[in-house]
Design a protein around this nucleic acid. Structure first.
Length: 485
RNA sequence: GGGCCGUUAGCUCAAUUUGGCAGAGCAACUGACUCUUAAUCAGUGGGUUGCAGGUUCAAGUCCUGCACGGCCUACCA
Protein backbone atom coordinates (compact mmCIF):
# COMPACT_ATOMS: atom_id res chain seq x y z
CA UNK A 1 0.00 0.00 0.00
CA UNK A 2 0.99 3.59 -0.44
CA UNK A 3 2.83 5.65 2.14
CA UNK A 4 -0.09 7.85 3.09
CA UNK A 5 -2.08 4.85 4.24
CA UNK A 6 0.64 3.99 6.75
CA UNK A 7 -0.71 6.36 9.34
CA UNK A 8 -4.19 5.07 8.69
CA UNK A 9 -3.01 1.50 9.21
CA UNK A 10 -1.63 2.53 12.58
CA UNK A 11 -5.05 3.88 13.45
CA UNK A 12 -6.60 0.64 12.35
CA UNK A 13 -4.37 -1.13 14.87
CA UNK A 14 -5.22 1.49 17.46
CA UNK A 15 -8.91 0.72 16.97
CA UNK A 16 -8.23 -2.99 17.44
CA UNK A 17 -6.28 -2.21 20.61
CA UNK A 18 -9.35 -0.40 21.88
CA UNK A 19 -11.42 -3.51 21.25
CA UNK A 20 -13.03 -2.44 17.98
CA UNK A 21 -13.04 -4.75 14.98
CA UNK A 22 -13.15 -2.21 12.14
CA UNK A 23 -14.85 -4.47 9.62
CA UNK A 24 -17.24 -6.38 11.83
CA UNK A 25 -19.60 -3.60 12.75
CA UNK A 26 -23.34 -4.04 12.46
CA UNK A 27 -25.84 -1.27 12.90
CA UNK A 28 -29.53 -0.82 12.23
CA UNK A 29 -30.71 2.65 11.35
CA UNK A 30 -33.98 4.10 12.50
CA UNK A 31 -33.66 7.23 10.37
CA UNK A 32 -31.89 8.50 7.31
CA UNK A 33 -30.45 11.98 7.49
CA UNK A 34 -33.34 13.27 5.43
CA UNK A 35 -35.87 11.64 7.73
CA UNK A 36 -34.24 13.30 10.73
CA UNK A 37 -34.46 16.67 9.01
CA UNK A 38 -38.05 16.11 7.92
CA UNK A 39 -39.17 15.05 11.39
CA UNK A 40 -37.02 17.46 13.33
CA UNK A 41 -39.72 19.10 15.44
CA UNK A 42 -41.28 15.84 16.61
CA UNK A 43 -37.91 14.22 17.26
CA UNK A 44 -36.70 17.12 19.38
CA UNK A 45 -39.92 17.44 21.32
CA UNK A 46 -40.19 13.72 22.11
CA UNK A 47 -36.44 13.48 22.79
CA UNK A 48 -36.32 10.44 20.55
CA UNK A 49 -33.00 8.67 20.21
CA UNK A 50 -32.35 8.29 16.51
CA UNK A 51 -29.97 5.78 14.98
CA UNK A 52 -28.36 6.87 11.75
CA UNK A 53 -25.21 5.97 9.86
CA UNK A 54 -22.94 7.25 7.15
CA UNK A 55 -19.51 8.50 6.20
CA UNK A 56 -17.66 11.19 8.15
CA UNK A 57 -16.97 14.03 5.75
CA UNK A 58 -15.41 16.50 8.18
CA UNK A 59 -14.22 16.44 11.77
CA UNK A 60 -13.79 19.53 13.95
CA UNK A 61 -11.97 18.54 17.12
CA UNK A 62 -12.27 20.58 20.27
CA UNK A 63 -10.21 18.76 22.85
CA UNK A 64 -12.74 16.93 24.97
CA UNK A 65 -15.46 17.22 22.34
CA UNK A 66 -15.78 17.21 18.59
CA UNK A 67 -18.19 18.01 15.83
CA UNK A 68 -18.34 15.98 12.65
CA UNK A 69 -20.42 15.85 9.48
CA UNK A 70 -22.05 12.53 8.72
CA UNK A 71 -23.13 11.91 5.12
CA UNK A 72 -25.58 9.28 3.94
CA UNK A 73 -27.37 8.84 0.63
CA UNK A 74 -29.92 11.46 1.59
CA UNK A 75 -27.64 14.23 2.81
CA UNK A 76 -25.42 15.42 5.63
CA UNK A 77 -26.00 16.06 9.28
CA UNK A 78 -23.77 17.26 12.07
CA UNK A 79 -22.97 15.02 15.01
CA UNK A 80 -21.66 16.20 18.36
CA UNK A 81 -19.40 13.93 20.36
CA UNK A 82 -18.64 14.84 23.99
CA UNK A 83 -16.41 13.08 26.48
CA UNK A 84 -18.95 13.99 29.17
CA UNK A 85 -21.56 11.93 27.37
CA UNK A 86 -19.51 8.99 26.13
CA UNK A 87 -17.07 8.57 28.99
CA UNK A 88 -13.31 8.57 28.73
CA UNK A 89 -12.79 5.14 27.16
CA UNK A 90 -15.27 5.46 24.35
CA UNK A 91 -14.27 9.06 23.63
CA UNK A 92 -10.72 7.78 23.20
CA UNK A 93 -11.87 5.81 20.15
CA UNK A 94 -12.40 9.05 18.26
CA UNK A 95 -8.66 9.68 18.38
CA UNK A 96 -8.36 6.88 15.85
CA UNK A 97 -11.28 7.97 13.67
CA UNK A 98 -10.64 9.83 10.42
CA UNK A 99 -12.54 11.71 7.78
CA UNK A 100 -13.90 9.07 5.41
CA UNK A 101 -14.63 6.49 8.10
CA UNK A 102 -18.06 4.89 8.31
CA UNK A 103 -19.93 5.28 11.55
CA UNK A 104 -23.32 4.51 13.05
CA UNK A 105 -24.47 6.84 15.82
CA UNK A 106 -27.33 6.92 18.28
CA UNK A 107 -28.54 9.94 20.18
CA UNK A 108 -31.05 12.74 20.62
CA UNK A 109 -31.53 15.46 18.06
CA UNK A 110 -31.05 19.10 18.98
CA UNK A 111 -30.18 22.47 17.53
CA UNK A 112 -26.87 24.10 18.44
CA UNK A 113 -26.58 27.73 19.43
CA UNK A 114 -25.65 28.44 15.85
CA UNK A 115 -28.88 26.76 14.77
CA UNK A 116 -27.37 23.63 13.24
CA UNK A 117 -29.45 20.46 13.49
CA UNK A 118 -27.22 17.99 15.33
CA UNK A 119 -27.22 14.47 16.77
CA UNK A 120 -25.69 14.30 20.24
CA UNK A 121 -23.85 10.99 20.18
CA UNK A 122 -24.63 8.72 23.13
CA UNK A 123 -23.66 5.47 21.42
CA UNK A 124 -21.81 4.63 18.25
CA UNK A 125 -20.72 1.63 16.19
CA UNK A 126 -17.64 1.77 14.00
CA UNK A 127 -18.63 0.50 10.56
CA UNK A 128 -15.59 0.78 8.34
CA UNK A 129 -12.14 2.32 8.01
CA UNK A 130 -11.20 4.65 5.17
CA UNK A 131 -7.55 3.90 4.46
CA UNK A 132 -6.99 6.59 1.87
CA UNK A 133 -7.44 10.34 2.08
CA UNK A 134 -10.59 11.71 0.48
CA UNK A 135 -10.28 14.51 -2.07
CA UNK A 136 -10.24 18.09 -0.90
CA UNK A 137 -13.32 19.00 1.12
CA UNK A 138 -14.01 22.36 -0.45
CA UNK A 139 -13.22 21.94 -4.13
CA UNK A 140 -14.22 18.29 -4.26
CA UNK A 141 -12.87 16.12 -7.03
CA UNK A 142 -12.47 18.02 -10.30
CA UNK A 143 -10.16 15.97 -12.48
CA UNK A 144 -12.53 14.62 -15.12
CA UNK A 145 -10.53 11.49 -15.78
CA UNK A 146 -10.34 10.55 -12.09
CA UNK A 147 -14.04 11.36 -11.69
CA UNK A 148 -14.94 8.79 -14.36
CA UNK A 149 -12.40 6.16 -13.33
CA UNK A 150 -13.21 6.41 -9.63
CA UNK A 151 -16.86 7.33 -9.85
CA UNK A 152 -17.32 6.28 -6.22
CA UNK A 153 -15.13 9.20 -5.16
CA UNK A 154 -17.00 11.50 -7.50
CA UNK A 155 -20.26 10.40 -5.87
CA UNK A 156 -18.91 10.81 -2.34
CA UNK A 157 -17.50 14.26 -2.98
CA UNK A 158 -19.80 15.91 -5.50
CA UNK A 159 -23.50 16.09 -4.57
CA UNK A 160 -24.42 17.52 -7.98
CA UNK A 161 -23.10 14.33 -9.57
CA UNK A 162 -25.11 12.20 -7.19
CA UNK A 163 -28.15 14.29 -8.11
CA UNK A 164 -27.74 13.58 -11.80
CA UNK A 165 -27.92 9.85 -11.18
CA UNK A 166 -30.84 10.24 -8.81
CA UNK A 167 -32.56 12.19 -11.57
CA UNK A 168 -31.77 9.44 -14.03
CA UNK A 169 -33.25 6.85 -11.71
CA UNK A 170 -36.42 8.88 -11.15
CA UNK A 171 -36.83 9.50 -14.88
CA UNK A 172 -36.66 5.81 -15.69
CA UNK A 173 -39.02 4.99 -12.85
CA UNK A 174 -41.57 7.49 -14.18
CA UNK A 175 -41.27 6.10 -17.69
CA UNK A 176 -41.97 2.61 -16.37
CA UNK A 177 -44.90 3.89 -14.31
CA UNK A 178 -46.38 5.66 -17.34
CA UNK A 179 -46.11 2.62 -19.58
CA UNK A 180 -47.22 0.15 -16.93
CA UNK A 181 -50.34 2.24 -16.30
CA UNK A 182 -51.18 1.98 -19.98
CA UNK A 183 -50.91 -1.79 -20.02
CA UNK A 184 -47.45 -2.16 -21.49
CA UNK A 185 -45.47 -5.23 -20.47
CA UNK A 186 -41.78 -4.89 -19.77
CA UNK A 187 -39.66 -7.62 -21.32
CA UNK A 188 -36.02 -8.54 -21.80
CA UNK A 189 -34.78 -9.73 -25.17
CA UNK A 190 -31.34 -11.04 -26.18
CA UNK A 191 -28.24 -8.93 -25.80
CA UNK A 192 -26.28 -11.59 -27.66
CA UNK A 193 -27.58 -12.12 -31.16
CA UNK A 194 -26.62 -14.25 -34.11
CA UNK A 195 -27.68 -11.54 -36.56
CA UNK A 196 -27.42 -8.03 -35.17
CA UNK A 197 -30.44 -6.14 -36.45
CA UNK A 198 -32.93 -3.39 -35.82
CA UNK A 199 -30.63 -0.49 -36.61
CA UNK A 200 -28.02 0.63 -39.09
CA UNK A 201 -24.80 0.38 -37.09
CA UNK A 202 -21.66 -1.68 -36.64
CA UNK A 203 -21.81 -4.29 -33.88
CA UNK A 204 -19.38 -5.73 -31.36
CA UNK A 205 -18.46 -9.32 -32.02
CA UNK A 206 -17.98 -12.00 -29.40
CA UNK A 207 -17.64 -15.78 -29.32
CA UNK A 208 -19.49 -18.54 -27.53
CA UNK A 209 -17.00 -21.30 -26.67
CA UNK A 210 -19.37 -24.19 -26.00
CA UNK A 211 -21.43 -23.56 -29.11
CA UNK A 212 -18.36 -22.67 -31.14
CA UNK A 213 -20.10 -19.73 -32.74
CA UNK A 214 -19.73 -16.04 -33.26
CA UNK A 215 -22.29 -13.80 -31.61
CA UNK A 216 -22.92 -10.08 -31.74
CA UNK A 217 -23.88 -7.71 -28.98
CA UNK A 218 -27.16 -6.22 -29.97
CA UNK A 219 -27.35 -2.86 -31.69
CA UNK A 220 -31.12 -2.76 -31.00
CA UNK A 221 -33.83 -5.02 -29.55
CA UNK A 222 -36.28 -4.16 -32.32
CA UNK A 223 -36.59 -7.42 -34.22
CA UNK A 224 -37.08 -9.45 -31.04
CA UNK A 225 -39.68 -7.07 -29.65
CA UNK A 226 -41.60 -7.34 -32.90
CA UNK A 227 -41.43 -11.13 -32.71
CA UNK A 228 -43.21 -10.69 -29.37
CA UNK A 229 -45.88 -8.60 -31.07
CA UNK A 230 -46.32 -11.49 -33.50
CA UNK A 231 -46.63 -13.69 -30.42
CA UNK A 232 -49.51 -11.63 -29.11
CA UNK A 233 -47.85 -9.28 -26.65
CA UNK A 234 -49.64 -6.28 -28.01
CA UNK A 235 -47.93 -3.67 -25.88
CA UNK A 236 -44.31 -4.35 -24.97
CA UNK A 237 -41.33 -2.30 -23.98
CA UNK A 238 -37.75 -2.79 -23.00
CA UNK A 239 -35.38 -0.37 -21.29
CA UNK A 240 -31.91 -1.70 -21.69
CA UNK A 241 -28.49 -1.38 -23.20
CA UNK A 242 -27.54 -1.29 -26.87
CA UNK A 243 -23.97 -1.64 -28.06
CA UNK A 244 -22.60 0.07 -31.14
CA UNK A 245 -19.05 -0.23 -32.33
CA UNK A 246 -18.62 3.35 -33.37
CA UNK A 247 -16.89 6.53 -32.37
CA UNK A 248 -17.00 7.95 -28.87
CA UNK A 249 -18.04 11.57 -28.41
CA UNK A 250 -19.91 13.84 -26.04
CA UNK A 251 -23.10 12.28 -27.45
CA UNK A 252 -21.96 8.70 -28.05
CA UNK A 253 -20.96 5.97 -25.65
CA UNK A 254 -20.40 2.47 -27.07
CA UNK A 255 -23.03 1.12 -24.69
CA UNK A 256 -26.08 3.26 -24.15
CA UNK A 257 -29.60 2.85 -22.88
CA UNK A 258 -32.69 2.81 -25.08
CA UNK A 259 -36.37 2.60 -24.45
CA UNK A 260 -38.09 0.70 -27.23
CA UNK A 261 -41.80 0.10 -27.22
CA UNK A 262 -44.28 -1.45 -29.63
CA UNK A 263 -48.02 -1.15 -29.77
CA UNK A 264 -50.05 -3.49 -31.93
CA UNK A 265 -52.80 -1.80 -33.95
CA UNK A 266 -50.91 1.47 -33.63
CA UNK A 267 -48.92 3.38 -36.22
CA UNK A 268 -46.52 6.30 -36.35
CA UNK A 269 -49.37 8.72 -35.71
CA UNK A 270 -50.32 6.99 -32.47
CA UNK A 271 -46.63 6.81 -31.60
CA UNK A 272 -46.38 10.56 -32.00
CA UNK A 273 -49.20 11.11 -29.55
CA UNK A 274 -47.80 8.55 -27.13
CA UNK A 275 -44.31 10.01 -27.34
CA UNK A 276 -45.58 13.52 -26.70
CA UNK A 277 -47.65 12.39 -23.72
CA UNK A 278 -44.95 10.15 -22.33
CA UNK A 279 -42.10 12.64 -22.41
CA UNK A 280 -44.04 15.74 -21.44
CA UNK A 281 -45.70 14.06 -18.49
CA UNK A 282 -42.54 12.34 -17.35
CA UNK A 283 -40.57 15.58 -17.54
CA UNK A 284 -43.27 17.29 -15.55
CA UNK A 285 -43.35 14.57 -12.93
CA UNK A 286 -39.58 14.57 -12.52
CA UNK A 287 -38.91 18.31 -12.68
CA UNK A 288 -42.26 19.84 -11.80
CA UNK A 289 -42.18 21.97 -14.94
CA UNK A 290 -42.39 21.68 -18.71
CA UNK A 291 -39.59 24.12 -19.36
CA UNK A 292 -35.89 23.48 -19.03
CA UNK A 293 -32.67 25.16 -20.02
CA UNK A 294 -30.15 23.03 -21.84
CA UNK A 295 -26.77 24.61 -22.50
CA UNK A 296 -28.36 28.07 -22.74
CA UNK A 297 -31.25 26.81 -24.92
CA UNK A 298 -34.71 27.36 -23.44
CA UNK A 299 -36.74 24.24 -24.18
CA UNK A 300 -40.48 23.87 -23.68
CA UNK A 301 -41.97 20.37 -23.44
CA UNK A 302 -45.55 21.63 -23.33
CA UNK A 303 -47.57 19.63 -25.89
CA UNK A 304 -48.51 19.68 -28.69
CA UNK A 305 -45.12 19.64 -30.37
CA UNK A 306 -44.16 21.07 -33.70
CA UNK A 307 -44.16 18.83 -36.75
CA UNK A 308 -41.74 19.39 -39.57
CA UNK A 309 -41.79 17.56 -42.88
CA UNK A 310 -38.30 16.57 -43.81
CA UNK A 311 -38.46 17.04 -47.61
CA UNK A 312 -40.11 20.44 -47.14
CA UNK A 313 -37.67 21.54 -44.46
CA UNK A 314 -34.69 20.62 -46.60
CA UNK A 315 -36.20 22.29 -49.66
CA UNK A 316 -36.77 25.50 -47.69
CA UNK A 317 -33.24 25.58 -46.33
CA UNK A 318 -31.32 24.40 -49.36
CA UNK A 319 -33.50 24.36 -52.45
CA UNK A 320 -32.77 20.66 -52.76
CA UNK A 321 -35.72 18.38 -53.50
CA UNK A 322 -34.69 15.11 -51.94
CA UNK A 323 -37.41 13.23 -53.79
CA UNK A 324 -37.19 14.67 -57.29
CA UNK A 325 -33.60 15.85 -57.69
CA UNK A 326 -31.18 13.34 -59.13
CA UNK A 327 -28.01 12.56 -57.23
CA UNK A 328 -26.20 14.65 -59.84
CA UNK A 329 -28.38 17.68 -59.17
CA UNK A 330 -28.13 17.23 -55.43
CA UNK A 331 -24.35 17.26 -55.73
CA UNK A 332 -24.40 20.44 -57.80
CA UNK A 333 -26.71 22.16 -55.35
CA UNK A 334 -24.55 21.01 -52.46
CA UNK A 335 -21.54 22.55 -54.17
CA UNK A 336 -23.45 25.80 -54.56
CA UNK A 337 -24.25 25.68 -50.82
CA UNK A 338 -20.61 25.09 -50.01
CA UNK A 339 -21.39 21.71 -48.51
CA UNK A 340 -18.73 19.04 -48.97
CA UNK A 341 -19.97 15.64 -50.15
CA UNK A 342 -18.44 12.32 -51.07
CA UNK A 343 -18.81 10.19 -54.18
CA UNK A 344 -20.10 7.14 -52.35
CA UNK A 345 -23.01 9.05 -50.77
CA UNK A 346 -26.38 7.77 -51.88
CA UNK A 347 -29.66 9.64 -51.56
CA UNK A 348 -30.20 8.48 -47.99
CA UNK A 349 -26.78 9.63 -46.87
CA UNK A 350 -27.36 12.99 -48.56
CA UNK A 351 -30.64 13.38 -46.71
CA UNK A 352 -28.97 12.70 -43.39
CA UNK A 353 -26.22 15.19 -44.07
CA UNK A 354 -28.64 17.89 -45.19
CA UNK A 355 -30.84 17.30 -42.17
CA UNK A 356 -27.93 17.47 -39.79
CA UNK A 357 -26.34 20.53 -41.32
CA UNK A 358 -29.31 22.68 -42.27
CA UNK A 359 -32.38 21.58 -40.31
CA UNK A 360 -31.20 20.13 -37.02
CA UNK A 361 -29.67 23.37 -35.63
CA UNK A 362 -33.17 24.90 -35.47
CA UNK A 363 -34.80 22.00 -33.66
CA UNK A 364 -34.62 23.34 -30.11
CA UNK A 365 -38.08 22.68 -28.72
CA UNK A 366 -39.32 19.10 -29.05
CA UNK A 367 -40.00 18.63 -32.75
CA UNK A 368 -41.18 15.70 -34.79
CA UNK A 369 -39.48 15.41 -38.14
CA UNK A 370 -41.61 13.36 -40.50
CA UNK A 371 -41.43 11.69 -43.89
CA UNK A 372 -38.06 10.02 -44.11
CA UNK A 373 -37.02 8.37 -47.36
CA UNK A 374 -37.73 4.67 -47.44
CA UNK A 375 -34.11 3.87 -48.39
CA UNK A 376 -32.90 4.80 -44.92
CA UNK A 377 -35.86 3.20 -43.15
CA UNK A 378 -35.66 -0.51 -44.02
CA UNK A 379 -37.98 -1.63 -41.22
CA UNK A 380 -40.67 1.02 -41.70
CA UNK A 381 -43.87 0.92 -43.70
CA UNK A 382 -44.02 3.11 -46.79
CA UNK A 383 -46.65 5.83 -47.05
CA UNK A 384 -49.71 4.84 -49.03
CA UNK A 385 -49.81 8.08 -51.02
CA UNK A 386 -46.06 8.27 -51.64
CA UNK A 387 -44.09 5.03 -51.48
CA UNK A 388 -40.81 6.91 -51.62
CA UNK A 389 -41.42 8.02 -48.04
CA UNK A 390 -41.72 6.00 -44.87
CA UNK A 391 -44.32 6.42 -42.15
CA UNK A 392 -41.60 7.46 -39.79
CA UNK A 393 -40.60 10.32 -37.54
CA UNK A 394 -37.63 11.28 -35.51
CA UNK A 395 -37.88 13.41 -32.41
CA UNK A 396 -35.39 16.22 -31.92
CA UNK A 397 -34.90 18.16 -28.71
CA UNK A 398 -32.17 20.69 -28.06
CA UNK A 399 -30.68 20.02 -31.51
CA UNK A 400 -30.26 16.37 -30.64
CA UNK A 401 -31.98 13.28 -31.95
CA UNK A 402 -33.79 11.74 -29.01
CA UNK A 403 -36.38 9.45 -30.57
CA UNK A 404 -37.18 7.44 -33.65
CA UNK A 405 -40.48 5.80 -34.56
CA UNK A 406 -42.43 4.28 -37.39
CA UNK A 407 -45.34 2.27 -38.56
CA UNK A 408 -43.69 -1.11 -38.53
CA UNK A 409 -43.33 -2.86 -41.83
CA UNK A 410 -45.36 -6.07 -41.46
CA UNK A 411 -45.41 -7.22 -45.08
CA UNK A 412 -42.96 -10.14 -45.27
CA UNK A 413 -42.49 -9.78 -49.02
CA UNK A 414 -41.71 -6.11 -48.82
CA UNK A 415 -39.49 -6.68 -45.78
CA UNK A 416 -37.54 -9.25 -47.77
CA UNK A 417 -37.06 -6.78 -50.63
CA UNK A 418 -35.83 -4.15 -48.15
CA UNK A 419 -33.40 -6.61 -46.59
CA UNK A 420 -32.13 -7.57 -50.03
CA UNK A 421 -31.53 -3.93 -50.87
CA UNK A 422 -29.61 -3.60 -47.60
CA UNK A 423 -27.62 -6.71 -48.47
CA UNK A 424 -26.60 -5.09 -51.75
CA UNK A 425 -25.39 -2.05 -49.85
CA UNK A 426 -23.49 -4.32 -47.53
CA UNK A 427 -21.83 -6.03 -50.47
CA UNK A 428 -20.79 -2.65 -51.72
CA UNK A 429 -18.96 -2.17 -48.42
CA UNK A 430 -21.53 -0.43 -46.23
CA UNK A 431 -20.74 -2.03 -42.87
CA UNK A 432 -23.76 -0.40 -41.25
CA UNK A 433 -26.26 -1.91 -43.69
CA UNK A 434 -28.80 -4.32 -42.30
CA UNK A 435 -28.33 -8.10 -42.63
CA UNK A 436 -31.01 -10.43 -43.92
CA UNK A 437 -32.70 -12.05 -40.96
CA UNK A 438 -34.55 -15.12 -42.25
CA UNK A 439 -35.84 -16.03 -38.84
CA UNK A 440 -37.44 -12.61 -38.49
CA UNK A 441 -38.98 -12.89 -41.96
CA UNK A 442 -40.45 -16.22 -40.96
CA UNK A 443 -42.03 -14.61 -37.92
CA UNK A 444 -43.58 -11.95 -40.16
CA UNK A 445 -44.98 -14.68 -42.36
CA UNK A 446 -47.13 -15.79 -39.44
CA UNK A 447 -48.64 -12.32 -39.48
CA UNK A 448 -47.74 -9.28 -37.44
CA UNK A 449 -50.59 -6.89 -36.77
CA UNK A 450 -50.18 -3.30 -37.92
CA UNK A 451 -47.90 -1.92 -35.24
CA UNK A 452 -46.38 1.34 -34.12
CA UNK A 453 -42.87 1.33 -32.65
CA UNK A 454 -40.92 3.99 -30.78
CA UNK A 455 -37.37 4.24 -29.52
CA UNK A 456 -36.07 6.87 -27.12
CA UNK A 457 -32.46 7.43 -26.14
CA UNK A 458 -32.50 7.53 -22.37
CA UNK A 459 -28.99 8.91 -21.94
CA UNK A 460 -29.69 11.87 -24.17
CA UNK A 461 -32.93 12.53 -22.39
CA UNK A 462 -31.10 12.55 -19.06
CA UNK A 463 -28.50 14.89 -20.55
CA UNK A 464 -31.26 17.33 -21.42
CA UNK A 465 -32.94 17.18 -18.02
CA UNK A 466 -29.66 17.34 -16.13
CA UNK A 467 -28.23 20.02 -18.43
CA UNK A 468 -25.20 17.77 -18.91
CA UNK A 469 -22.90 18.73 -21.78
CA UNK A 470 -21.47 15.23 -22.17
CA UNK A 471 -23.06 11.78 -22.20
CA UNK A 472 -20.29 10.67 -19.82
CA UNK A 473 -21.86 12.84 -17.15
CA UNK A 474 -25.02 10.73 -17.20
CA UNK A 475 -23.43 7.27 -17.48
CA UNK A 476 -21.99 6.01 -14.20
CA UNK A 477 -19.02 4.23 -15.72
CA UNK A 478 -18.38 5.52 -19.24
CA UNK A 479 -15.95 3.53 -21.33
CA UNK A 480 -12.34 4.70 -21.00
CA UNK A 481 -9.07 3.18 -22.02
CA UNK A 482 -7.23 1.50 -19.16
CA UNK A 483 -5.16 4.05 -17.27
CA UNK A 484 -1.54 4.16 -18.34
CA UNK A 485 1.25 4.13 -15.76
C1' G B 1 -8.10 8.67 -37.99
C1' G B 2 -6.66 14.25 -37.85
C1' G B 3 -5.98 19.05 -35.11
C1' C B 4 -5.50 21.87 -30.58
C1' C B 5 -4.93 21.72 -25.27
C1' G B 6 -3.81 19.32 -20.68
C1' U B 7 -1.06 15.81 -17.05
C1' U B 8 3.21 19.39 -10.82
C1' A B 9 2.15 16.48 -3.12
C1' G B 10 -3.71 12.26 -1.46
C1' C B 11 -7.02 16.66 -3.45
C1' U B 12 -7.45 21.94 -5.57
C1' C B 13 -3.97 24.91 -7.77
C1' A B 14 0.91 28.20 -8.23
C1' A B 15 5.97 28.29 -10.15
C1' U B 16 7.93 36.24 -14.03
C1' U B 17 7.71 37.72 -21.13
C1' U B 18 12.72 34.95 -22.07
C1' G B 19 15.41 27.66 -18.67
C1' G B 20 18.38 29.28 -12.67
C1' C B 21 17.20 25.91 -5.18
C1' A B 22 9.27 23.10 -6.88
C1' G B 23 5.43 26.49 -3.49
C1' A B 24 0.47 27.44 -1.17
C1' G B 25 -4.33 25.95 0.73
C1' C B 26 -6.96 21.64 2.18
C1' A B 27 -5.84 16.68 3.88
C1' A B 28 -2.00 14.12 7.22
C1' C B 29 1.15 14.21 11.79
C1' U B 30 2.43 16.59 17.06
C1' G B 31 0.42 19.87 20.78
C1' A B 32 -3.71 23.34 22.86
C1' C B 33 -9.01 23.76 22.89
C1' U B 34 -16.44 21.03 25.56
C1' C B 35 -21.34 25.10 20.53
C1' U B 36 -17.75 24.30 15.97
C1' U B 37 -19.36 24.17 10.88
C1' A B 38 -14.03 25.82 4.80
C1' A B 39 -13.43 25.79 13.33
C1' U B 40 -9.21 28.34 15.48
C1' C B 41 -4.01 28.72 17.37
C1' A B 42 1.34 26.84 17.51
C1' G B 43 4.57 23.44 15.16
C1' U B 44 6.16 19.07 11.66
C1' G B 45 6.56 15.88 7.57
C1' G B 46 5.16 15.09 2.49
C1' G B 47 7.45 15.49 -4.90
C1' U B 48 10.73 9.91 -10.04
C1' U B 49 6.77 17.53 -12.00
C1' G B 50 2.43 11.18 -16.61
C1' C B 51 6.52 7.77 -19.02
C1' A B 52 11.10 7.38 -22.17
C1' G B 53 14.78 9.93 -24.64
C1' G B 54 17.29 14.57 -26.34
C1' U B 55 19.37 19.82 -26.11
C1' U B 56 21.89 22.57 -22.12
C1' C B 57 26.75 24.21 -17.16
C1' A B 58 21.48 23.91 -15.64
C1' A B 59 14.80 21.46 -17.79
C1' G B 60 8.30 21.44 -14.41
C1' U B 61 9.70 25.09 -18.29
C1' C B 62 12.80 23.92 -24.81
C1' C B 63 12.76 19.49 -28.59
C1' U B 64 11.23 14.22 -30.05
C1' G B 65 8.44 9.85 -29.13
C1' C B 66 4.82 7.34 -26.16
C1' A B 67 0.52 6.81 -22.56
C1' C B 68 -3.96 8.70 -20.66
C1' G B 69 -7.63 12.52 -20.72
C1' G B 70 -10.45 16.95 -22.58
C1' C B 71 -12.40 19.85 -26.68
C1' C B 72 -13.04 20.22 -31.95
C1' U B 73 -13.25 17.38 -36.34
C1' A B 74 -14.05 12.81 -38.91
C1' C B 75 -16.74 8.30 -38.48
C1' C B 76 -21.46 7.40 -36.54
C1' A B 77 -28.47 7.30 -36.18
Amino acid sequence: MEVETGEKLEKLQELRNLGIEPYNGHFEKTHTVLEIRDREAALIQSETKVRTAGRLMAIRRHGKALFADLQDHTGRIQIYVKRDVLGDDRFQVFRAIDVGDLLGVEGKVFRTHAGELTVLVENFVFLGKCLRPLPEKWHGLRDVEVRYRKRYLDLIMNPEVRNIFLLRSRLIREIRAFLDERGFIEVETPMMQVIPGGALARPFKTFHNALGMELYLRIAPELFLKRLVVGGFEKVYEINRNFRNEGISVRHNPEFTMLELYEAYGNYETMMRLCEELLSSVVFRVLGTYTITYQSMAIDFTPPWRRVFLPEAIREKTGIDILEDSLEIMRKKADALGMPWEVHWDRGKFVNELLERFVQPELIHPTFVLDYPVEISPLAKAKKDDPRLAERFELFIGQEEVGNAYSELNDPFEQRRRFEEQARKRQRGDLEAHSIDEDYLEALEYGMPPTGGLGIGIDRLVMLLANAPSIREVILFPLLRPAGD
